[in-house]
Each structure stands twice: as C-alpha cells, then as structure tokens.
C-alpha cells in the first residue's frame, strides 16, 4: 500500500483549470521530486494535497484513508506537513513560537524542539527573535523546522531553494538528506532540476497542469527531461 495515492486530481481557480487529472503514488520512505516551469501546476498540486484547495472526492488517499475534502487542519493532523512557498512564517511570533506551533496537532514522533535546534544551531541562538527578522536561509530553516515538529508521515517542500544563495541552498538540502534518513517521505517541488533530482528516488515533471514525464533520475536522459520541462 502506498503512503499517498493520488488519482485523477483536478484543480480550478474560478473558471480556469490548473490541474488536469494528476495520478501519483508515493511509497513510505520514498523521496519524490516534482519539477516543472513556472505555472505548471506544482504548487497547486501541493495545495490540493494539503486541503487548501478543494480536490474531487476520492482523488487523494493517505495510508489508504480518503482525505480529499477534509479541512486543511485535519489533513495536517493526519500526517501531511507543508513547507509553503515563500515560507509563510507568522510575523508576530518569535522563532521558537513559530517552530513550536508546528507541533500544535500533537502527533508524536522523532522530531522535538531540541532535535530541530540540533539540526539548525543558528536558530537556537536566535530563538527569541521575531521570525521574519531573520535572513532568508534562516527563515527557510524555521519553516522546515516548523513542518517537522508536526512529525509528518509526508513532508511537502515547495520551492525551498527559491531566492537563496547557493551555499545556503546546500545547507538546506543537507537537512533534507537527514530528514530522509529519518524515514520520512518527502516531496520536493523545485524549478532547480539538478538539486531536486539529486535527492529524489523518482521524479515527476509537470507541464501545463499535466504530468508530462515521470521516472527515476538515473534512467532518463537530461535531454528527455528538459524536453518534458519546456514542452518542446
């Protein structure tokens, strides 16, 4: 049984359709990359999984349980955490309060405030600062730590390298490696293909709301991938 099973997922913004029947299976412990250009529907896909958009009934199952149509807070408690695009930290909360709030759902698991600080020592030093006063990389660490505190079965990361210096991106992805090492399933959505393919067991390429290509990074040539990516 796969951890996450998506069948025929569609999504709409008003009258315009953003996703046209996405199918996806993610096994427990697997890391999946979703790549694609701007507007391909990657973020829409993640938002649908999290319950921020209304997906069709029965289109999404988590551990065999239908979750499509549940409110976002219940999906979070069921074991899906999102590191949202643009980080979306709570500006009136301190670093520690932001991270701590990730555990609001009360799921138990390996991740605690201490483990998060062990992974991101910089955050411990700045734990009482206002979260949005931190540097971009540190804010991204807060967002990841906050999502981990939910002890999710599935961690969704939306564009976590966007706007960060290459050195910082490397640090962030090192943390993703250790999260994967913990046995958590991870989905990374990226425009940066190389970075995403490095950590992923499998990848899906989105184009105009459809899966244009899927496979394992070693088995598909870069030329085929960029063909699917740019739609040429």
């Amino acid at each position: 049984m796969s951890l996450l099973s998506v069948r025929g997922l569609t999504a709409f913004y008003g009258d315009s359709q953003a996703l046209f029947g996405i199918d996806m299976e993610i096994a427990a412990g697997e890391t999946v990359a979703i790549i694609g250009s701007n507007g391909a529907g990657k973020s829409t896909f993640l938002r649908s999984i999290c319950g921020l958009l209304a997906p069709p009934a029965d289109s999404i199952h988590l551990n065999g349980r239908p979750i499509a149509g549940l409110p976002a807070n219940q999906i979070a408690r069921a074991g899906i955490a999102l590191v949202p695009e643009g980080r979306r930290l709570f500006p009136s909360l301190s670093v520690e309060e932001n991270i701590g709030l990730g555990g609001y759902g009360g799921r138990s698991g390996p991740w605690t405030l201490k483990r998060v600080y062990d992974m991101f020592p910089d955050l411990y030093i700045r734990r009482s600062h206002a979260a949005t006063k931190l540097s971009g990389g540190q804010q991204q660490m807060v967002a990841i730590g906050r999502a981990l505190m939910a002890n999710p079965d599935l961690l969704l990361c939306d564009e976590i390298s966007l706007g960060l210096a290459p050195r910082v991106v490397k640090d962030i992805y090192r943390s993703i490696d250790s999260i994967i090492g913990e046995g958590t399933s991870v989905v990374v959505v990226e425009q940066d293909i190389a970075q995403a393919l490095r950590v992923a067991d499998r990848f899906y390429c989105f184009q105009e709301g459809r899966v244009s290509l899927g496979g394992r990074p070693g088995e598909v040539s870069m030329a085929t991938i960029s063909g699917a990516y740019f739609g040429v």
């Binding site: 796969s2 299976e25 899906y204 184009q207 899966v211 244009s212 899927g214 394992r216």
Partner: peptide
Amino acid sequence: TSQTPPPLPVTVA
C-alpha cells in the same frame, strides 16, 4: 495498490 509504486512509463503528454 502494491507496496512499491509501479514504474511510470516515460511518456510525453
């Protein structure tokens, strides 16, 4: 579905 997801066919829609 089975434990491991089936390998996806490489197709371009």
